[in-house]
């Protein structure tokens, strides 16, 4: 059986598309002035991340990324954007200080990126000799219900507390009709 012609190149192109989608989405999320575009950038970034998770041999996490981040988190933030008016204020006050602090923030993030990139790229990441499981959804299910059952129950409790807490906090201060 001969492989599909240029399949390696097609896979590489799709991988590069995922990387570019992730980075461009993150840039849109961090740099635009209007918050609703920022939320859309977060959604684009999460779609790209889902593709990267797929390339990391985990289609389950790719599905969960789209389901939770794009489907739940972004929609919830959009609701908050509709309730508040969170657009960035126009930058008229004290332009010199704004440029100074912006440059400082850029310097900090560039230093962090350079350090981490240097650590990651100049290291010899050898693969382990043996794999204990195959990392499939079945293996994840077995592990969640045996080894990690305690953490699984605890995170459901944490989510319950978060829901009740969010309801209690958002309810205070509301005037009676």
């Amino acid at each position: 059986m001969t492989p599909f012609p240029a399949s390696q190149m097609i896979v590489g192109a799709i991988f590069l598309l995922c990387v570019v989608t992730t980075v461009v989405g993150a840039l849109i999320a961090a740099l635009t002035a209007r918050i609703i575009r920022s939320v859309c950038g977060l959604a684009i970034c999460c779609i790209g991340l889902a593709g990267l998770y797929y390339f990391l041999h985990s289609p389950f996490l790719a599905l969960m990324e789209i389901l939770i981040y794009v489907g739940a988190v972004c929609v919830t933030i959009v609701f908050a954007v509709m309730l508040a008016e969170p657009d960035e204020p126009v930058r008229d006050e004290n332009a010199g200080a704004t440029v100074l602090w912006g440059g400082l923030a850029l310097l900090v993030s560039a230093a962090i990126f350079w350090g981490l990139w240097h650590l990651g790229a100049h290291q010899d990441w050898t693969a382990p000799a043996t794999r204990l499981t195959d990392g499939s959804v079945k293996a994840i299910g077995y592990s969640l219900l045996t080894t990690y059952s305690m953490a699984f129950e605890l995170i459901s409790l944490a989510l319950l507390v978060a829901i009740i807490g969010a309801l209690a906090i958002a309810r205070t201060g509301r005037t009676k009709p």
Binding site: V108, S109, I112, F113, L116
Partner: peptide
């Protein structure tokens, strides 16, 4: 790892 470092840097910025 580079993409993750870039995401972290953009997030901190």
């Amino acid at each position: 790892l580079s993409v993750a470092a870039l995401l972290l840097a953009i997030g901190i910025y």
